[in-house]
């Protein structure tokens, strides 16, 4: 039985706790948060120990791995605490706030030889996984255009840091990282970007249309927003137009991504000369899939192949390039 701990008891922690509860061969031993009430509340709900000091927790519990759910700009620091102790890490996305610090994080991981994975959960998400399969099986042909969309209101209990331009960076960093990562997954390395983006009253780029050209010539526009008004469901979608097929996948949840009750989901495929097919999108918990995969990597003592740390670093470089493009209003080449 593998022993897990969780650091940072904010919004996303719950998804990982549930995933552990539903995954065989792993148990949650403790959680920590600098805010005592948050730690005790989550510990109570999941029947484990609570800490306010992550280092103390790591030293006392000696877990096999830690799930890092602290705000983005703390990721490197907590990865370091784990890596020094030889504790493997599943780290929430985005990997870090800037390329510079993300590079430091990667160096720390490699120096200490721990198993590391960024929780880019979209790579495990139902629907997105089917589209990845279509790419692998060449069911789409040459791609004319991809449009990925991820929009939300700010109704969720998001931390204040998320909408601080330097700490969380708003939609351009926290939301866009999902789609940029997914594009890296299905379409490979990046060539150039142009960001059509607007800052709102938070000072963050919270409405972004990122125009992306991949090295293999695939064109994509990734759209994110945190500025949907009251009652707008957390929504994401993918449209792919290829020579062999047009695909439309869409998902809408409750007000936040954590609220997956009453979600709506559909996948439509128009294959050349074959008319419309509506594919079933299997309903499963992507966090659980992600956890099971990570646990398997630990058991086999190998680095994850579905999400490599080098790709995670490339993704942060791309987000930085998109940010730069928005700042200077020019095309940025990678």
């Amino acid at each position: 039985m593998l022993k897990a701990v969780l650091i940072g008891c904010g919004l996303i922690a719950e998804s990982h706790v549930q995933a552990i509860e539903n995954t065989k061969g792993v148990t949650l031993s403790a959680v920590s948060d600098v805010i005592k009430e948050k730690a005790t509340s989550l510990a109570k709900a999941s029947g484990c120990k609570a800490y306010t000091d992550a280092e103390l927790m790591l030293d006392e519990i000696k877990p096999d791995f830690a799930i890092i759910c602290v705000p983005t700009y703390f990721h490197k620091d907590y990865v370091e605490l784990c890596a020094e102790r030889g504790i493997h890490v599943l780290c929430e996305k985005p990997l870090e706030r800037s390329t510079k610090v993300a590079q430091q994080l990667v160096d720390i991981v490699k120096k200490n030889g721990i198993i590391f994975m960024t929780a880019q959960v979209v790579r495990f998400w139902s629907g997105y996984d089917q589209i990845k399969e279509m790419f692998l099986n060449d069911e789409l042909g040459e791609i004319y255009m991809m449009h990925l969309r991820r929009v939300s209101s700010r109704a969720g209990e998001y931390g204040k840091w998320l909408f601080d331009p330097d700490l969380g960076g708003g939609a351009m960093h926290d939301m866009l990282v999902h789609d940029v990562d997914y594009l890296r997954h299905v379409a490979g390395p990046f060539e150039s970007c142009y960001a059509n983006a607007v800052k709102d009253d938070t000072g963050c780029y919270n409405n972004v249309m990122a125009n992306i050209i991949h090295k293999n010539g695939i064109h994509a526009v990734a759209e994110v927003s945190f500025n949907m008004q009251t009652g707008y469901p957390f929504s994401f979608s993918v449209k792919i137009v290829g020579t062999k097929a047009t695909v439309e996948y869409s998902y809408s949840a409750g007000a936040t991504i954590a609220d997956r009750s009453g979600s709506k989901c559909e996948m439509k495929v128009w294959k050349k000369d074959q008319g419309l097919t509506e594919l079933e999108v299997k309903s499963f918990d992507a966090y659980q899939k992600q956890m099971a995969y990570f646990i398997n990597c630990l058991k086999e003592n190998k680095q994850p192949e579905i999400i490599t740390i080098d790709e995670s670093l490339e993704v942060i470089k791309m987000i930085d390039a998109i940010h730069k493009s928005a700042d200077i209003g020019e095309v940025v080449r990678l």
């Binding site: 255009m145 449009h147 059509n196 526009v221 062999k244 047009t246 050349k272 074959q274 008319g275």
Partner: peptide
């Protein structure tokens, strides 16, 4: 005025789209 927009146009949709 600072507003932003994206417009998409295509003749590339497949089959009975």
């Amino acid at each position: 005025n600072g507003f932003k927009a994206v417009a998409e146009a295509s003749f590339t949709m497949r089959s009975t789209y």
